[in-house]
Design a binder for these strands. Structure first.
Length: 512
RNA sequence: CGCGGGGUGGAGCAGUCUGGUAGCUCGCAAGGCUCAUAACCUUGAGGUCCCGGGUUCAAAUCCCGGCCCCGCAACCA
């Protein structure tokens, strides 16, 4: 099995985690957990992007040195992801000494191979944005961001011969259909490549900005933030040694939001080509959440704080909503009503209640002791088993295509089947007839296998719930218990625990 | 202008890549069950899959044309 390498964008430390960044983390965490559970060797990276003028400014306003400022914010990010149960393997910071060294190494290498040149560049520059503008981009001659007139400056900088690699990149994308996915974003990048991409200015004079990585061959300059930040994906592996790098790098899968397609789809691969490194495997681009149909923005004040939702409904339920309610690549909508409905319907009524009724009967009828299965299974028993086997099988295909909503849909359709199975077999009626006691025991045994199966397949999506299910079944932690074939999950005389309400229903005002 | 996304029963959506009886949740109507978190199960009403052409034995799905809606200043995934 090939190794799996998953990355998130590095979060820029002048913002706070919100629904969008949480979504990225939940998707990648789900995938990382999924692959780990399948036995793949997995490396999952996140971190913070800490250089650049904006950060230097905010730090100055707070009257602390930039490094101290980023230490603080970076730690805050980290602790939020920890609180959300995100299982990243490594948290990189672009201020890490190892990273700085590697960026400089790449710069030197690219410089030596002749792909960096020193040149004069004149243009309209906005100091607020730290970038040049073309006439076309301006609004009434002003920077659309800061609403100030850009300054005409002419300065000398270092440039990366990005244009040189344009054709090679286009060819790569054309011959590798899943290099950038979903397809819409691949087309978008191909669109960018239809026009000349030009060269990339990769330095900033220290006279304007000092908070960055120094250009190794000219101490008057620091590195442009994107050139610095993108390299993190490689430097995080390098820090663990050459062998580690060689093993994971070619398997890299980047997950990003649609706003940063260009740096990842154009800058980064051409940089890799110039540095003589293999290209990443996939660039996976997701959409932007809207909130109640509106664009999410700080000025509208409709941002969603992850820890707040977590406090209200729990992280598992939050994860469920994000994964079930979105289609990867599209712009999903975060609606309060949908959040509650999903919670009550799928989690409380279908999953929670199923577990509850099964464990209650097991307790009531057999004092919690699992009853033996007969050698022959009834037709409905086989169907129940087959339904789950099929679901688990289909799930793999959906995960490979990042179709999280379908993966969950598939599991829930099997879960519905289990609820139906209870009504069809009606153990609560049979139990009244002493002659049918053993059949009731079998039916409940199959239903416990359902719960055990759920505790396995839900691991990536609802990790806490999966663990709780296993604990309710009084099974030890470990793959052997989870992966045992259907019918062989419980030892003779095994006793399970009493039911527990996993997802208390949320009563809305209207229903009270 | 251009680029991207979307138009599917009352609401919100999936399905479109890989054509083959139109699916999910909510809501509505009727019924069943009583193990369970007033949960669960069954049945029903409700759809010109935006419009018009084309390809095909067969189109929500592929091709062509058109209409309408949303996004493309920033924060930001």
């Amino acid at each position: 099995m090939e190794p799996i390498y998953i990355t998130t964008p590095l979060f820029y430390v002048n913002a706070e985690p919100h629904l969008g960044s949480t979504y990225t983390m939940v998707i990648t965490d789900t995938l990382a957990r999924y692959y780990r559970a399948q036995g793949y060797e997995t490396f999952y990276l996140t971190g913070t992007d800490e250089h650049g003028d904006k950060i230097a400014q905010v730090a100055a306003e707070a009257n602390v040195p930039p490094k101290e400022f980023t230490d603080r914010v970076s730690a805050a990010f980290r602790s939020i992801w920890d609180d959300c149960g995100i299982t990243y393997d490594y948290f990189i910071r672009t201020t890490d000494a190892d990273h700085v060294r590697f960026v400089q190494e790449i710069l030197s290498r690219v410089n030596e191979s002749g792909d960096i040149y020193f040149g004069k560049y004149g243009g309209l520059y906005c100091f607020g944005c730290e970038r040049f503008y073309t006439e076309k981009e301006l609004r009434d001659g002003k920077c659309p961001d800061h609403l100030v007139k850009p300054t005409l400056i002419e300065e000398e900088n270092y440039f990366f011969r990005m244009g040189k690699y344009q054709d090679r990149l286009r060819e790569h994308i054309e011959t590798h259909a899943d290099f950038i996915r979903p397809e819409g974003y691949r087309n978008e990048v191909l669109g960018m490549l239809r026009e000349p991409i030009g060269d990339l200015c990769i330095s900033r004079p220290k006279s304007r900005l000092t908070w960055g990585i120094e250009i190794p061959f000219d101490d008057r300059y620091v590195t442009y933030v994107w050139f610095d930040a993108l390299i993190n994906y490689a430097s995080a592996l390098k820090q663990r040694g050459e062998e580690f790098f060689r093993k994971f790098w070619p398997e890299a899968q980047h997950f990003i939001g649609k706003d940063i397609v260009k740096p990842h789809g154009v800058f980064w691969p051409t940089m890799l080509m110039a540095a003589g490194l293999p290209l990443y495997k996939h660039l996976n681009v997701h959409g932007f959440w809207t909130v109640e149909g509106q664009k999410m923005s700080k000025s509208l004040g409709n941002t969603v704080a992850p820890l707040e939702i977590r406090a209200r409904i729990g992280m598992d339920a939050f994860r469920y909503f994000l994964l079930r309610e979105s289609v990867f690549g599209q712009d999903p909508d975060f609606r309060e009503e949908a959040l509650i409905t999903r919670y009550n319907t799928d989690l409380a009524n279908n999953l929670g209640n199923l577990v509850s009724r099964v464990l209650a009967m097991q307790q009531k009828y057999f004092n919690g002791v699992v009853q033996p299965l007969g050698s022959e299974w009834a037709t409905e028993d086989k169907q129940l088993h087959d339904k789950f086997a099929q679901a688990e099988n289909d799930l793999h295909g959906h995960m490979a295509e990042l179709q999280f909503h379908r993966a969950l849909e598939t599991i829930w359709s099997a879960l519905d089947h289990a609820n139906r199975y209870i009504v069809q077999t009606a153990p609560f009626t049979m139990i009244k007839d002493p002659a049918q006691q053993s059949r009731v025991g079998e039916v409940l045994h199959h239903l416990l296998e359902v719960i055990r199966t759920l505790s396995r397949v839900l691991v990536p999506f609802l990790p806490d719930t999966a663990r709780e299910l296993r604990e309710l079944l009084a099974l030890p932690d470990g793959k052997e218990t989870l992966n045992a074939p259907w019918g062989q999950g419980f030892q003779a005389g095994h006793k399970i625990n009493a039911p527990k309400v996993l997802f208390p229903r949320i009563e809305t005002e209207a229903k009270k």
